[in-house]
């Protein structure tokens, strides 16, 4: 299991990286953390002619906190989120999520933007980006454009990235104070890709749901933001009955594909059950976090 031969380029800066990407648009591939790409190369399922190693680009590292959003450099390692990168609900949610991404050594090397660009339908960060309406900054030698998550993910392992573009930053709007979040996934083993996962954010007012974010992962060709469930939740009491209804809505609205780890019917039902839990988790946190 050795990869096919490739040419290796290591740009000094973003401008050079963009040039390399443009020059190798047909058969080049960006190497960020490499934790998904390199296994695929070792199996010779991916065989780029040219590998453009951007791991050293300083400009793409690190998280910036703004008043209303977090701006995450695409090359920020997963492990950065082991501790809260900001106060408030979003920072806490990212901590909650990151522990489910593969294993510790993978998180030391894999990157936030690499995961989004890879666009595995069962990737945790893709679910976060979709559910929280992140914006991706895509740069090329010709300029930059901002693409919302809803346009960025186009299908299984498919994104809006053009061959001459690099995802450089991801902006995630912060969640309002008092928001509770929930993240639940079910995998066969610790660290495996989830059979299904649910991400929720609830803002409560007097025991009722004032606003809701609901996303499901691993049950379609991309992460799903469940707008209809969000709308249905608003105004409802934050009770197990409400969450059960939401879970049933989820079952009715998705049609996952089966594979060797779980049949389609199983995943559909599982996603509903996980959503119920994630909503309950978010409600509990929201009650605890409610401003006094």
């Amino acid at each position: 299991m050795k990869p096919a031969a490739f040419a290796y380029l290591k740009p000094e800066n973003l401008a050079e990286a963009l040039r390399f990407v443009a020059d190798n648009a047909d058969d080049g591939k960006l190497l960020a953390g490499g934790q998904s790409l390199v296994p695929a190369m070792n199996f010779r399922l991916a065989r780029p002619e040219t590998l453009i190693d951007i791991t050293g680009l300083e400009a793409l590292q690190g998280v910036e906190e703004h008043a209303d959003a977090l701006s995450i450099g695409a090359l920020t390692r997963h492990a950065t989120f082991h501790k809260p990168v900001s106060d408030g609900a979003l920072g806490r949610l990212l901590v909650k999520v990151v522990g489910h991404i593969a294993h510790y050594p993978i998180r030391q090397r894999g990157t936030f933007g690499g995961s989004l660009s890879h666009a595995d339908p069962a990737a945790e960060w893709c679910l976060v980006a979709t559910t929280l309406n992140a914006t991706m900054r895509l740069e090329s030698s010709g300029g930059a454009r901002d693409v919302p998550a809803s346009d960025f993910f186009r299908g299984s392992f498919t994104t809006a990235l053009e061959p001459n573009e690099i995802l450089t930053r991801i902006t995630i709007p912060k969640l309002p104070d008092g928001t509770g979040t929930g993240f639940v996934e079910f995998a066969r083993r610790k660290g495996d890709f989830a059979l299904a996962m649910a991400l929720t954010a609830l803002h409560l007012e007097g025991g009722a749901i004032r606003s809701a974010r609901v996303g499901l992962g691993g049950v379609a060709d991309r992460a799903l933001r469940m707008d209809a469930i969000e709308a249905a939740l608003v105004g409802q009491p934050a009770t197990p009955e409400t969450f059960a209804t939401a879970g049933q809505m989820a079952r009715d609205q998705i049609s996952p594909r089966g594979d060797i780890h779980g049949s389609a019917e199983y995943r559909r039902d599982l996603a509903g059950a996980l959503l119920e839990r994630a909503l309950a988790q978010a409600a509990e946190e929201a009650r605890g976090a409610a401003p006094t």
Partner: peptide, 27 residues
């Protein structure tokens, strides 16, 4: 395994525990 699951190849790179089957020497 050479695909990053088993961890037998774990080494430290700049202090970080990393799968050395998923990193090229040139990096």
């Amino acid at each position: 395994c050479e695909h990053g699951v088993c961890g037998a190849c774990t080494v430290l790179i700049d202090g970080r525990a990393t799968r050395s089957c998923l990193v090229f020497a040139v990096q």
